[in-house]
Design a protein around this nucleic acid. Sequence first.
DNA 1: CGCGCGTTTGAACGGGCTCAAACCTTGTGG
DNA 2: CCACAAGGTTTGAGCCCGTTCAAACGCGCG
Lengths: 263, 263
Amino acid sequence: MHAQILASTATLATTESTESTLPWQSTRRPAGAKFESDERWSSLQELHSLLQYEGHLHDGHECELFRRRRVKAGQAALMMGQPFDGLYVVRLGTLRSSISNADGGVHVLSFPMKGNLLGFDGIYKYSYMSDVVALTDCDLIRIPASDLFAAGRGINHLEHMAYWASSREITQEQSAYCLTRSVKSEGRVARFLLTMSQRFADMGYSPNRFILPMTRRDIGHHLSVTVETVSRAFSALVQQGIIHVDFREINILSHEALCNFER
Amino acid sequence: MHAQILASTATLATTESTESTLPWQSTRRPAGAKFESDERWSSLQELHSLLQYEGHLHDGHECELFRRRRVKAGQAALMMGQPFDGLYVVRLGTLRSSISNADGGVHVLSFPMKGNLLGFDGIYKYSYMSDVVALTDCDLIRIPASDLFAAGRGINHLEHMAYWASSREITQEQSAYCLTRSVKSEGRVARFLLTMSQRFADMGYSPNRFILPMTRRDIGHHLSVTVETVSRAFSALVQQGIIHVDFREINILSHEALCNFER
DNA sequence: CGCGCGTTTGAACGGGCTCAAACCTTGTGG
DNA sequence: CCACAAGGTTTGAGCCCGTTCAAACGCGCG
């Protein structure tokens, strides 16, 4: 469905001679350059350069090497649900990062290119939460999970925890993002209520009766609709007997009916 | 959605007395409870509990304490551009995180509640990239920047770099997110082209002539519009002499005109 | 009280979606 | 080399949903 093949080698051959405007092309080296077989490595310096990271290089780190990974156009670089095995930095090529819900609805999160980072959403549950496929032949640099987390457990414990939590937030934000526009406004409001319901439940409060702390306008700005649309969506759900609304107070009468609306 | 947040012991103690459905209210303690003046602290254990982090507690960390911060309803917890001074974990209350572009367009990113993390987008440029205001009286726990980054610089260098880069990716994704739906489809396509142009330029390629590596469908799924709408937007821009399109190849004829379209 | 703000509802407009068809490119196999 | 199939791209026509503009009501607050 999504997979597709761009002209890779053929296109490369024709455009490489001219001053290139195609950033994903040419992992080729100038004639005469050393060819390192299948095993190719990148230094920490190259990582710094790619990421444009201004941090200092400390002694003993200059010679750290990271394995590269080739991904051909159309192939998956990361798959949702796959166990986390590290972060990747794009060295060459263009990819497409997307998430899809159960109904086949797709949202394209980003098009990672040189210097972008992949796989951050895999830290939270130790498995990746989005699909990433190569649109062109790609060259990735892997930062192994072991390198990230193994050293200095006791020392960077706090930092690791913070970033683990960040990964979770990001993941959830992406899921929310997926819903925007993918579905009619009434469905998005329904989904929003279900999300709030779940969050209240997780905090130990009633999932069926709660008071929204935000205005209709805030909800609208969150779901990318106008205030009036939010209000009308509430009214429609009330009229169908699915919820009861008294200003900020929400009563969910039929959790199931609400679920059916979110698609 | 994804798993999170069981009621923590501390919070249970305060809210258990009444069966409350209002999680943001009442930081009040039962009469007779000890009142700790202005200084209130949370332990690392409480952080673990709030975040639902399953990591082990190491010796010497049990007694680490983190300062809490009260934010009254309506007040700003974090402001865009403010220097980064740490991450915050919500202990109590509900907030609203949003970004706004120059034209006054607003997008609400999330409604952080108990256990959620604030301020991650501040790591990249060492200043926060979103506004966060309290919708209700809030209680935050601060994880100071010094605690996060100071210790073991040499050891967790790699991890820090990875997360710094993550923060950048998140920030940019949020900016892109802000554009969705905020503007007409033609403007969003214009903005998309400008973004691609900028990215190609950053990589050292021509900002005015490039070949899109993705399909119209991918672009549509990224901007939350249909294939046809993307195609029509391209055609409209061509007809106005702003760009030239030959399938995947894009020529930007008037960068300025494209900028005017993005709003 | 009067003012501002949040909420709700109505009416009309218009932009994007849906459905449909045609054209082009690319890849495959005869 | 050509025919064919599959999928990407473009354009048109009609419809529907969400926006826009407008008005009314309730609530909190100075």
